[in-house]
């Protein structure tokens, strides 16, 4: 109990329970078969519930699973039995909302697969090795979406607006450092 809150896995499945993107942080499911069995079981058990307006919750094989659905996408976050349910729900909400921002409101399987790179980066920014990195959807999406070009690149490679942004960043940095 004195340990840091931790997340065991984050799952994004489609409406048939197949993987869109998943990330495991614990060794509870060592093989891919074990992982798939778990996903299937979680999916089947939650399938019929209505988790579209509010996040729902269930106990499962000694774990707590919080979940939320939108369109044909099912979002899950798993934590240990003793984990604070509300912390897990916060992580779920962060992930859910960040995906919504990144896909500009068109949250469905097709869109998610077409932007899988963003989804994977999003997972990477939420939890690192089980430890919660960030739960604010705006911050997560902001980190994932910052696709501007490296500030150190020669100006010739940049567009005007990028150049302006870079210049502004340089200015702020020098002011702050000064």
């Amino acid at each position: 109990m004195e340990t840091c809150p931790s997340v065991k896995n984050i799952l994004l499945l489609d409406s048939e329970g197949k993987r869109v993107a998943v990330k495991y942080y614990s060794n509870d499911w060592p093989t891919n078969v074990a992982k798939e069995t778990y996903e299937k079981a979680v999916f089947t058990k939650t399938q019929k519930t209505n988790a579209r307006t509010e996040a729902e919750i269930a106990m499962f094989e000694g774990n707590i699973v919080v979940y939320k659905f939108v369109q044909d996408l099912h979002f899950f976050v798993t934590g240990g039995e003793d984990e604070n349910e509300l912390i897990l729900a916060t992580v779920l909400q962060g992930f859910f909302d960040a995906v919504g921002l990144l896909l500009r409101g068109n949250v469905d399987k097709k869109e998610a697969l077409e932007n899988l790179d963003l989804i994977l980066l999003c997972l990477d920014e939420i939890v690192d090795g089980g430890i919660i990195l960030e739960t604010d959807a705006n911050v997560i999406a902001g980190k994932v979406a910052s696709h501007s070009v490296d500030a150190g690149a020669p100006l010739s490679e940049q567009t005007i607006s990028q150049a302006l942004a870079t210049a502004r960043e340089h200015l702020t940095r020098s002011l702050l450092n000064g």
Binding site: E54, A55, E56, V66, E85, L86, A89
Partner: peptide
């Protein structure tokens, strides 16, 4: 509460 997670946590 209107949130299932909250109700679950409390009742558990």
């Amino acid at each position: 509460s209107s949130k299932p997670v909250l109700r679950f946590a409390a009742v558990r």
